[in-house]
Computed example of a mutant assay.
Amino acid sequence: MEKDEQVYRGKISFINYEKQFATIDYLHNTKQKSVNFKTNAADSGKKPHQFKLNDSVSFQLRLSDRGDKMTAYNVKFIHNEAVDLLIQKSAIENRFAGYLKIVDGKFFVKEVESYVLFPIQLSKWEKEPVETAANVAISFKLINIDKPNSIAAELFSHNYTAEYKKALQHFDKKIDIEAVVARVSPHAVYLNLFGEKMQAKLSVTEAEKETIKEGDIIPVNIVHLTSNRVVVKRVTA
Rank of each mutant, 00 (worst) to 15 (best):
Ser185Gly: 13
Ile138Trp: 05
Ile102Lys: 03
Asp4Glu: 05
Ile92Ala: 09
Asn221Thr: 09
Asp43Tyr: 08
Gln20Lys: 11
Phe118Asn: 02
Gly10Cys: 11
Ala207Gln: 13
Lys201Pro: 00
Ser203Ile: 02
Val7Phe: 04
Phe37Lys: 08
Ile143Phe: 00
Glu206Lys: 08
Lys165Ala: 06
Ile145His: 05
Pro148Arg: 15
Ala237Asp: 06
Phe51Lys: 15
Met1Lys: 09
Gln199Leu: 01
Glu131Met: 03
Pro129His: 12
Ala182Thr: 05
Arg234Ser: 04
Lys31Gly: 01
Asp172Ala: 11
Val57Gly: 06
Lys89Cys: 10
Ala207Arg: 06
Lys233Leu: 01
Thr226Arg: 03
Val204Asn: 04
Ala152Thr: 09
Pro119His: 04
Leu168Pro: 00
Pro186Ala: 06
His187Ala: 08
Val57Pro: 09
Asn192Leu: 10
Ser34Asp: 12
Glu2Cys: 04
Val230Ser: 02
Lys209Glu: 11
Phe77Asn: 08
Asp104Asn: 14
Tyr115Glu: 15
Ala188Lys: 13
Lys213Gln: 14
Tyr99His: 15
Ala82Leu: 06
Asn228Asp: 12
Gly45Val: 12
Lys127Cys: 11
Lys173Ser: 08
Ile92Thr: 13
Lys69Asp: 07
Phe96Met: 00
Ala200Arg: 03
His28Tyr: 13
Phe171Cys: 03
Tyr190Met: 08
Ala179His: 04
Lys3Trp: 03
Pro148Met: 14
Ala152Ser: 15
Lys38Gln: 13
Ser203Leu: 06
Gln88Met: 11
Asn16Ser: 13
Glu214Lys: 09
Thr132Val: 06
Asp55Ile: 12
Gln20Phe: 00
Gly98His: 06
Thr226Gln: 05
Glu163Lys: 05
Gly195Met: 08
Ile15Glu: 02
Asn221Cys: 01
Val136Phe: 01
Tyr164Met: 05
Asn29Pro: 11
Lys173Arg: 10
Pro186Ile: 05
Lys165Thr: 11
Leu117Asp: 04
Ala97Asn: 14
Gln20Leu: 09
Phe96Tyr: 05
Lys213Ala: 11
Tyr190His: 14
Ser139Tyr: 14
Asp55Phe: 09
Gly98Trp: 00
Phe59Val: 10
Met1Val: 07
Val184Lys: 12
Asn29Asp: 15
